[in-house]
Amino acid sequence: MKALSLEGVGHSFGQRRVLDAISFSVAEGAMCILLGRNGAGKTTLFSLATGLYHARSGQIDVFGHSMRTDPAAALAQMGVVFQQQTLDFDLTAAENLRYHASLHGLGASISEARLREELGRLEVLDRRDEPVRSLSGGQRRRVEIARALMHRPRILLLDEPTTGLDVPGRRAIEQHVRALCRERGVAVLWATHFLEEVSADDDLVVLHQGRVRWAGGARHVATSLAVDGLADAFDLLTETA
């Protein structure tokens, strides 16, 4: 079954067309990288995929549930880490996670157990009772990922989760997410503009000027385009027409 499926998705803000005929899917348990330069339309795509607003055209399904007609069932399967940090700075890390758990209908005991498990897995359990305001950027990102996992989603959407972090911080986040994908079978859609976050085994979608320029295995992109490597392939795919 497809974890996430987009068919002919298009969107515009007023007269400005930002996404056009977007079609691709993320398989269950797969790691899919959504690669694009700044302004390519990745964040708008995330807003549509998470139901923040509806696409003007096309269909978005999450594990077979339509985001337009059955958003609650679709969102229940999904964990989201937005590009903008969405933690409440006035609350502690644990309070942020409890709030999320309540929005997903989790009871207090399950919430507490998962809070410990997820914060522990992301190595920030010792900071659980500190206000988010006092955490570093990398720690906040980890707390956000832990929060997104509280309700055991089957697909995780991350919009440029490593932006603003130093190199060790970026690597740590990437390793955590890849481990989730490998060990728990969580499907991942990871939006980024960093080429080094793409692994040969990943599925790859290249987005440019609101259109999909490539969708397929990352290891095949260079050979298909007859260039030397991913960087050259990306440059070729994102050349401005």
Partner: peptide, 14 residues
Amino acid sequence: EMGSMRLLLTAPLP
């Protein structure tokens, strides 16, 4: 603007 509204609006409730 800060983003935390997104968390509320992406909760699986009407």
